[in-house]
Design a protein around this nucleic acid. Structure first.
Length: 202
DNA sequence: CAAGTGATTTACT
DNA sequence: GTAAATCACTTGC
């Protein structure tokens, strides 16, 4: 097990930066969920997409605040979880300051800890596929609507926290257009680690 | 490639 | 209120 007292937590100010920068810098960070004392799920984030506060029609917050998107208008550093296509949850990290309406979608990650538990949640054995899409990532971590609004400043005061883990140079990161959306899909707001086995859609 | 699946939003009475 | 359209996905042909 990793010693979480010896690796550096991501602080509040990180999430208050520009959404596009947070999306880029999240690549290589460790996403951790505490499920009980001494039992953790963790994965290294490898693929993200930014959803911007101003004029981004693909962003759920683009048309103003609604019951669903209200977490996006909170101060950065909480989860925004929504249900999509009748089957899947998507996990987003809220960014920037309260009132902005912005977030970063976690699209893929490399499992690090709690792999057997993730296999159970996902009902598959292939480690490379445990977190290789936004719906799969959420399922591997057991994330659902109950996790909406959850703080990312655990491990003491919530179940979730992010930590510094790997750093990658810009030439190891691919920046390209977002996928699976109908509007503004030409904007280069998707980031992922080059040549990773843990990402399904290149 | 298409289907499955259901919450949310929007556009109407 | 009610109905229709929408949807930042995954899996299996």
């Amino acid at each position: 097990m990793l010693n979480y007292k010896k690796i550096e937590r991501i602080s509040k100010s990180f999430y208050l930066q520009k959404t596009e920068k947070v999306a880029r810098e999240l690549i290589g960070k460790l996403f951790v969920k505490k499920i009980s004392d001494g039992e953790y799920l963790s994965a290294e984030i490898l693929e993200t997409e930014a959803y911007l506060p101003d004029g981004d029609l693909a962003c759920h917050a683009a048309k103003g605040k609604t019951p669903r998107n209200s977490p996006m208008f909170e101060n950065g550093g909480i989860l925004y979880v929504y249900f999509i296509y009748g089957n899947h949850y998507c996990s987003n990290i809220v960014t920037e300051e309260a009132g902005k309406g912005a977030a970063v979608l976690i699209r893929a990650a490399k499992p690090i800890e709690g792999i057997e538990i993730m296999k159970n949640y996902r009902e598959i054995e292939n480690i490379q596929r445990l977190c290789n899409g936004p719906g799969n990532f959420a399922k591997a971590f057991g994330i659902n609507k109950l996790d909406n609004y959850q703080s990312l400043f655990g491990i003491n005061n919530s179940n979730y926290c992010l930590f510094h883990f790997n750093e990658y140079a810009d030439d190891e990161i691919v920046q390209t257009n977002r996928i699976g959306i109908k509007q503004n899909s030409e904007l280069p707001l998707r980031f992922y680690l080059k040549d990773s086995e843990y990402i399904s859609r290149k």
